[in-house]
């Protein structure tokens, strides 16, 4: 790869140029992260009048808290469900759009639209559609004999947040899959056709393996998304309920810290999340780059 090298006449100018970015990172990321790490070792009362250093007690506490372990399981289920749904649906749509000759760009534009919708808005949208009292979908489900109630039924609530969180992510995945499909040389597909592979076999043996780097990348990105960026979706729909059934780790940080005012435990939970995101980013950089299969 070619890199452009710029020579600055002034020695200070380059530092000025990176200062805004550094400032944002320091003020909004490094400082709060440091605060979280420090606070995770403290026990404070709700009004901040007394503070005590307790070492790793907060970590020990959350790891023995059944509520926290439940949130972990919920997060794993939620992440896998959202990643699977959004990747599979996006792949199907991308294959369908890619097979079009004329209207491909129209469909692409339409399918990318949801990505422009804010997560909270998407959440509210689905909350309305699935609302047991006024929503259209529970009404239709009643027609086939299913009584939908995401306010009482934990499974229904989980399905609701999975759909709401996947909807937006489908657009994102779709774009990557479409680009991936278009970068597969047409001659490869033709060679496979002459080699006696039908459309399904061609997809399984040629197209899907060629997309595997894209798929792996999206898997990591989607897991990061569901673990950290779905706060708004949960907050706008189920708020972790009913009975903790959709209370994912990042939402629990919020409820314990800002509603429960247990800042020490909340900070310890954020530090755990931080470690997870660092690990995932490491995997992404380390393996996605290397996991090119050909």
């Amino acid at each position: 790869m070619q890199t452009k090298r710029t020579i600055f006449s002034s020695k200070i100018l380059p530092y000025w140029l990176i200062l805004p970015q550094l400032a944002v990172t320091l003020i909004f990321f490094v400082w709060p992260a440091g605060q979280a790490v420090w606070q995770s070792f403290l026990r404070e009362d709700a009004f901040g009048t007394s503070t005590e250093f307790v070492g790793l007690a907060n970590y020990v506490a959350i790891l023995h808290d059944p509520g926290y372990l439940n949130a972990m399981i919920v997060t794993v289920v939620f992440s896998i469900a959202v990643a699977t749904v959004s990747i599979v649906v996006a792949l199907v749509l991308a294959v369908a759009a890619n097979s079009l000759l004329k209207s491909r760009s129209l469909y692409t534009t339409l399918l990318v639209w949801p990505y422009a919708v804010a997560p909270a808005v998407a959440g509210v949208l689905f909350w309305f559609m699935f609302n047991p009292t006024i929503g259209l979908i529970p009404y239709l489900l009643k027609g086939i004999g299913y009584h939908w109630d995401d306010r009482l039924n934990g499974t229904d609530a989980m399905i609701l947040v999975v759909i709401a969180a996947s909807w937006k992510q489908i657009s994102y995945n779709f774009l990557f899959f479409l680009a991936g499909l278009q970068s597969i040389p047409k001659a490869l597909i033709e060679a496979a056709a002459i080699d006696g592979a039908g459309p399904g076999k061609r997809f399984r043996d040629i197209v899907f393996p060629m997309l595997s780097p894209t798929t792996f990348f999206l898997l990591v990105v989607n897991v990061v998304y569901t673990m950290f960026d779905t706060f708004a979706v949960i907050h706008a729909t189920t708020q972790g309920g009913p009975n903790q059934s959709t209370n994912i780790l990042v939402y629990k940080v919020f409820t314990d810290g800002f509603i429960g005012l247990d800042l020490g435990s909340s900070s310890a939970q954020s530090v755990v999340l931080m470690v997870i995101v660092i690990a995932l980013t490491f995997i992404q950089f380390r393996f996605v780059e290397r996991n090119v299969q050909y």
Binding site: A187, A191, A192, P209, M210, Q293
Partner: peptide
């Protein structure tokens, strides 16, 4: 036999 060989890279 294709111009760019069209070998299955994986």
């Amino acid at each position: 036999v294709f111009q760019n060989y069209a070998l299955y890279p994986h």
